[in-house]
Amino acid sequence: MTARGITLVILLSLPSASLVADELSHNDALRLTQQGIIKPVTELVQIATRKYPGSHVLELELERKKSLYIYEMEVIMSTGQVREIKLNAVTGQIIKDELDD
């Protein structure tokens, strides 16, 4: 295999930048909220849990995919089922809402 072929194999084996999300810290979330870039997490939790009365957030992560900030939440419903809900952290729009496996 030539050097060019090896380089191509390495590049093809790397994950696509568009598919990889950067996980952000709580300090990043606070800074982005204070700068008015994203909505306060309390507001986004209310949006997610309002859809399922009696539900509670189990897990919460802020991610950045390209220039989009996304809050990913795992919410346990009163039935015991867990849902994965993704919200646009800037607009509050629900992007994904499905039962978690």
Rank of each mutant, 00 (worst) to 15 (best):
P15R: 10
D22T: 14
L12K: 09
I47G: 03
L60Q: 15
T91K: 06
L44E: 05
D101M: 05
S16A: 15
G5D: 13
A3Q: 13
V75Y: 04
Q93L: 06
R31I: 02
A48R: 04
S78F: 07
S13M: 14
K51Q: 14
E72A: 13
L62F: 09
G80V: 05
S67A: 11
V90Y: 00
S18L: 10
N88T: 03
L12C: 15
E72D: 14
T79R: 05
M73L: 15
L87M: 08
Y71W: 13
K86V: 00
Y69H: 12
L11K: 13
K86Y: 03
D22S: 14
T49R: 05
T33P: 02
E23V: 13
E59S: 11
R31Q: 12
Y69P: 05
S16E: 08
L32Q: 05
Y52M: 08
P53R: 03
A29N: 06
Q93C: 00
L58H: 04
S78I: 10
E72S: 14
I6D: 07
Y52N: 11
A29Y: 01
T7P: 00
Q81W: 02
G80F: 06
L87Q: 08
I47L: 06
L14N: 07
I76R: 14
N27D: 15
R83E: 09
M77K: 12
G80E: 01
N88M: 04
E43K: 10
R50S: 15
E74I: 06
A17D: 10
K66Y: 02
A21N: 10
L11W: 10
A17T: 12
V90A: 05
A48N: 02
V75M: 07
P53W: 04
V45M: 09
N27C: 00
V82W: 05
L60H: 08
T7C: 12
S25W: 06
L11P: 07
A89V: 06
K51T: 10
M1S: 10
Y69D: 03
V82H: 05
A3W: 08
P53H: 00
S13K: 07
E23I: 11
G80P: 06
Y71L: 05
K86H: 09
E23C: 07
S25E: 07
I85Q: 03
L12T: 11
L11S: 14
D28V: 03
A48Y: 03
S13L: 15
R83M: 14
E84M: 04
D101C: 01
S13F: 12
G54T: 00
E98G: 00
Y52L: 10
L60R: 11
V9A: 15
S18M: 07
I6R: 12
I94G: 02
L8T: 13
S67E: 12
S78P: 00
L58W: 01
T7D: 13
D22W: 08
M1R: 07
I6E: 12
G92E: 01
S18E: 09
Q34W: 01
G54D: 02
T79L: 02
E61F: 12
V57R: 00
T33A: 08
Q46C: 00
